[in-house]
Design a binder for these strands. Structure first.
Lengths: 163, 163
DNA sequence: CGGCGCGTTGACGTTTACGTCAGCCGAGCG
DNA sequence: CGCTCGGCTGACGTAAACGTCAACGCGCCG
């Protein structure tokens, strides 16, 4: 019976993953419904493998950066297609590049917004320092170490809406 | 009647703004319903001022980086509170800082994703180059001429939403 | 044996950000 | 005068991403 239950063979219950990734069982089942996950079953219970866990990570990161579940599913499917389908891979490549462009755009938008916010903060700080310095509690404690801020603020691309 | 219809006195119809910003009248009215815009009226018709236009710009940029309309409204209200309310301004400052942190987090997420995508692209490119170079059409045109910047991708970034 | 505790499957509710449609107004025009 | 055009106001519809029940299965524990 010496089943190697070492590292990558580990499996997870739904709750374990939920705890680890701060989400709900409902969400995981939902992702499954939508075809983003397909864990093994043992009877009725879901058994998540290491690969499933990795997929979940991808899903959550995708969500954080604003991908829809449908889009994430596409990506996952494309990843899964490691098979010889060269045309498939070409399509994947195209999609990936699209996403890169979109992400770069997003980053630029965020940088713009950040600049604006910082400026607004500066104004507010200056104002408060004069009018009510007591309210200006934690002025300087927001210094995140900025190793190297690369902001290649690309020009404006449209962000169209589709039907 | 040399009415200075020069620059900042200009006004806009709903359609003009919609054309300029690639959105629909419905959206603008919706934003108004939600308290993000409040253009003047001339009879029934909405008359958007330059300031309204600026607000709209903010709204749309906010959306692009994943803010909800409610969040955008908050920000707009805080901006509007240029009045003396020092406590209000302190609150605004806190909120702004929160957002800065959130945006930085999002940027980091995006950067991570970008790195992953680039790596995946590299692998795909390498693979295709061997297996089917003919399919690898537009490899090097990543920063080729931009005929008309139209990337069919609008995005909303998720915020740490919670119940 | 009764009852947790964990898990499962529906099914319906909710929020956000609009789309869509119907019906009505006033301006202008041939 | 009838018509269209742009705009306005509801009111209803929709898609995404779950939340929230309700009802049930299953192991096991005191």
């Amino acid at each position: 019976m010496a089943v190697e239950l070492r590292r990558p063979e580990r499996t997870f219950t739904i709750r374990q993953l939920c705890l680890e990734f701060k989400c709900t069982p409902r969400a995981l089942r939902f992702y499954e419904d939508k075809g983003l996950l397909s864990p093994a079953r043992q009877g009725l219970n879901r058994i998540y493998s290491y690969k499933d866990r990795a997929r979940l990570q991808l899903i959550l990161r995708g969500k954080r950066v604003g991908l829809s579940l449908a889009e994430i599913r596409e990506i996952l499917q494309l990843y899964g297609k490691g098979d010889g389908g060269a045309a498939q891979n070409a399509k994947a490549l195209r999609k990936f590049r699209e996403r890169i462009v979109a992400f770069e755009q997003q980053r630029a938008d965020i940088d713009e917004h950040l600049a604006e916010l910082r400026e607004a903060c500066a104004r507010l700080e200056a104002f408060l320092e004069k009018s009510a310095p007591d309210l200006l509690v934690s002025a300087a404690e927001m210094n995140a170490p900025r190793p190297s801020g690369r902001s290649s603020t690309d020009r404006r691309l449209a962000s169209p809406r589709h039907a």
